[in-house]
Computed example of a mutant assay.
Amino acid sequence: MEKKTTTTKSASKSSIQFGFIFGLIMILEFVIGYVLNIDPQSNKVYGLIINLLNFLVLPLTFIYLACDNYKTKINSGFISFNECLKIGVSVCVIAGLIYGLFSATFAYIFPEYFEEMFRKMRTIMAQENSKLTSEQIDMTISFSKKFMNPAISIPTTVVMYAFFGLIYSLIIGAIVKKDANQSF
């Protein structure tokens, strides 16, 4: 029983460490885009790269690193599928929470950034889809603004990253799992 408690604490230590790094990298991407005034809506390549990084490459990488760290450095070369799921979802939840809190704080400190983003969004929507009426564009933007509310955006971000963490953990868990009772 004592071993199980120590193992759980070590798994959470690995999750917190890699989830924190993952969250900081997402914040750094956002800050670099802000400082360099790169708009992901008008610069489609930048937006695609950021989305690929944040929703595919970074989660897979950090879930793998956290599971591998736990397996090799903490648990004597063993990791169960269940532990991979716990670690992977925890990494993504922590990263999503850190990024969600940062984004909400940023929106509070620099509301003009998001107002400018909505103005650009209005222009792009009008240019790319001439069938939309002004009322439809206003409704879309007001809906987007509602999702900027921290009471909605933070939980949504956390749940979204938890979902991705679960899916990626299933894949990574199938690859890296090695139960203590396996023999080759």
Rank of each mutant, 00 (worst) to 15 (best):
1 M>S: 13
3 K>M: 10
3 K>A: 15
7 T>E: 15
9 K>C: 02
17 Q>N: 11
22 F>C: 03
24 L>T: 02
25 I>P: 04
27 I>W: 03
31 V>F: 03
32 I>G: 06
33 G>Y: 02
37 N>H: 11
40 P>Q: 10
44 K>T: 14
48 L>P: 00
48 L>C: 00
49 I>V: 15
51 N>H: 02
52 L>C: 10
54 N>Y: 01
58 L>K: 04
60 L>W: 01
62 F>W: 08
63 I>D: 07
66 A>F: 11
66 A>E: 07
68 D>E: 14
72 T>M: 10
75 N>P: 08
77 G>R: 05
79 I>C: 05
84 C>L: 04
86 K>G: 15
88 G>Y: 01
90 S>K: 10
90 S>Q: 11
96 G>V: 03
98 I>Q: 05
103 S>C: 00
103 S>K: 03
106 F>A: 07
109 I>R: 01
109 I>H: 02
113 Y>H: 14
116 E>N: 12
116 E>D: 12
117 M>G: 02
119 R>E: 13
121 M>A: 14
121 M>P: 00
122 R>W: 01
125 M>C: 03
127 Q>M: 12
127 Q>P: 00
129 N>K: 12
129 N>Q: 13
131 K>L: 10
132 L>T: 07
132 L>I: 05
134 S>D: 12
136 Q>V: 07
143 F>K: 11
144 S>H: 06
148 M>W: 02
149 N>I: 09
151 A>D: 02
155 P>D: 13
156 T>R: 04
157 T>I: 06
163 F>M: 11
166 L>Y: 14
167 I>S: 04
167 I>M: 13
169 S>Y: 08
169 S>T: 06
174 A>V: 08
184 F>L: 12
